[in-house]
Simulated assay, not measured.
Amino acid sequence: MSSVAIQSEAPVALSPRGLKRLALSSLLAMTAFIGVFGMANTATAATADEIKSRGYIAVATEDDFKPFEFVDNGTPTGYDNEMLALVKKKLSLPIHQQIMPWPGILPGVTTGKYDMAVTAVLVTPERKGTFDFTVPLAESTTYYAIKKGSSIKSADDLVGKIVGVQTGSAMLTDLKAFDEQLKKTHGGQGLKQIVEYQSYPEIYQDLSVGRLDAAANTQINLNSLIKTRPDNFVLGQKIGSPVYIAWAVKKGDTAALQMINGVLLDLRKSGEMYQMQKKWFGASFESMPQSIN
């Protein structure tokens, strides 16, 4: 097997986004961190009057996180960029957007450099202590994928099977919880083995050649995999609880939040948000709550 099975007692639950960013060089991360916090870190969020007086809302968007946001031939695109374009059409106040690497975005929001992070921020209990979030824009739920032709027909069929997952990820946490659930409902029998990997390309390779019976990842990522390799893989069932992705403002910044939320709720009512989800994710999330703060 190409990877070693590791059972860490206290894994750090990171989203695929978090793991991708950890792969950025430490120099880039540190430079961005120092650059932002070198400004007055006592800055406060702008009030509604201050934003109106300034004449625009300032937002920051990541430059390379497909399918949410990326730059194609010099043009920002992806789900968040297209959602922002819809918001701009309906909002009376202009939005000034800066495209930049991830490490400087959330620090820039906390210091008041940006009013909002218009990027796919996974909403976690830890982040809720520092940020408030818009209406959710997507749902992130752990599913499993199998090789086409597999005998696995439902999540219960994973009993006694070997499943691959990315180490340190939120999906690993979900998979371990699912394993415990299987044991409770199947007389103590759960997964045969959880195999942790550094990257998903390794996982998909081992699934393809039969070293794994299934791979655990988010529905969005697995849909993308199956779209590009429909002859190899099939989407299974949900094995985790939904968590949500939203845009972030500094804690207590109700001004920018209310301005944007009003438009996002309208885009949900009109169905435009769900159409955009289907375009970029291959699925729509129409049961998302209106508030996650």
Rank of each mutant, 00 (worst) to 15 (best):
residue 260 I to E: 06
residue 100 M to L: 07
residue 28 L to T: 06
residue 267 L to C: 08
residue 53 S to D: 05
residue 264 L to N: 08
residue 131 F to E: 00
residue 12 V to E: 12
residue 144 Y to K: 02
residue 187 G to Y: 02
residue 266 D to N: 08
residue 200 Y to E: 06
residue 30 M to W: 03
residue 271 G to M: 11
residue 185 T to S: 01
residue 204 Y to K: 14
residue 2 S to Y: 05
residue 126 E to S: 10
residue 225 L to K: 07
residue 9 E to N: 09
residue 168 G to E: 02
residue 101 P to N: 01
residue 88 K to W: 13
residue 229 R to T: 14
residue 138 A to C: 02
residue 40 A to G: 08
residue 157 D to C: 00
residue 155 A to W: 02
residue 108 G to F: 02
residue 148 K to V: 11
residue 102 W to L: 14
residue 91 L to H: 09
residue 242 P to A: 06
residue 270 S to Q: 03
residue 176 K to H: 06
residue 126 E to M: 01
residue 66 K to R: 15
residue 205 Q to W: 06
residue 25 S to P: 12
residue 255 A to W: 13
residue 36 V to C: 14
residue 75 T to I: 11
residue 107 P to V: 07
residue 150 S to P: 00
residue 175 L to Q: 10
residue 47 T to N: 07
residue 146 I to Q: 13
residue 204 Y to N: 09
residue 115 D to W: 10
residue 188 G to H: 02
residue 130 T to S: 11
residue 274 Y to R: 12
residue 196 E to N: 09
residue 220 I to G: 05
residue 254 T to F: 10
residue 8 S to I: 06
residue 59 V to R: 10
residue 19 L to W: 12
residue 257 L to E: 04
residue 215 A to D: 15
residue 16 P to D: 13
residue 168 G to S: 04
residue 192 K to Q: 08
residue 81 N to L: 07
residue 118 V to E: 04
residue 132 D to F: 02
residue 177 A to E: 09
residue 162 I to H: 07
residue 202 E to K: 13
residue 106 L to E: 01
residue 62 E to I: 15
residue 119 T to W: 08
residue 253 D to Y: 14
residue 289 P to I: 08
residue 84 L to V: 01
residue 123 V to M: 02
residue 253 D to W: 12
residue 23 A to M: 07
residue 116 M to D: 07
